[in-house]
């Protein structure tokens, strides 16, 4: 999608916080990417690595990504469940699961309705 521009926007938000708190450099940034946000974590991290070189105060910053598992409500039995993130196989991890459909752990129905998961949130910034 537009991971590069999202990373850029996030860095602008962090820079504003840096000024607000009179700090000079960023050491750590924590961002939560929801499982249904459509944002590819690797691309977001890549965008951050590229862009941080152009901002002195980001030079030593580390990006931490929180990638929560998707939550669903089963429309058959009503149970609310979280299922492990199914990722497609990549060059980095060719053996990982490629399934795109999930089943309810209680009744095995595939009628699972996603609960939230589209969040993109700047969680925490550490600065000095």
């Amino acid at each position: 999608m537009h991971e590069m521009s999202l990373a850029h926007g996030m860095m602008q938000q962090v820079l504003a916080l840096l000024r607000e708190h009179g700090a000079e450099r960023v050491t750590d940034v924590t961002v939560l990417l929801g499982p249904f946000s459509g944002v590819v974590a690797e691309s977001f991290a890549f965008g951050f690595e590229v862009l941080k070189k152009s901002e002195t105060c980001f030079q030593d910053a580390t990006l931490h990504l929180e990638l929560p598992d998707p939550h669903y409500r089963c429309l058959e039995c009503g149970v609310e469940t979280s299922l492990p993130l199914t990722r497609s196989a990549t060059f980095l991890d060719p053996d990982c699961e490629t399934s795109t459909s999930s089943r309810c752990p209680v009744c095995a129905s595939t009628r699972l309705s996603p609960l939230g998961g589209a969040e993109l949130i700047l969680q925490q910034v550490r600065m000095e």
């Binding site: 999202l6 938000q13 708190h21 050491t27 993109l120 949130i121 700047l122 910034v125 600065m127 000095e128």
Partner: peptide, 15 residues
């Protein structure tokens, strides 16, 4: 210790 930890919890697409 000059380190400051700021909890933000703000949407990336807030604007």
């Amino acid at each position: 210790n000059k380190e400051k930890v700021v909890d933000v919890h703000e949407q990336l697409l807030a604007a």
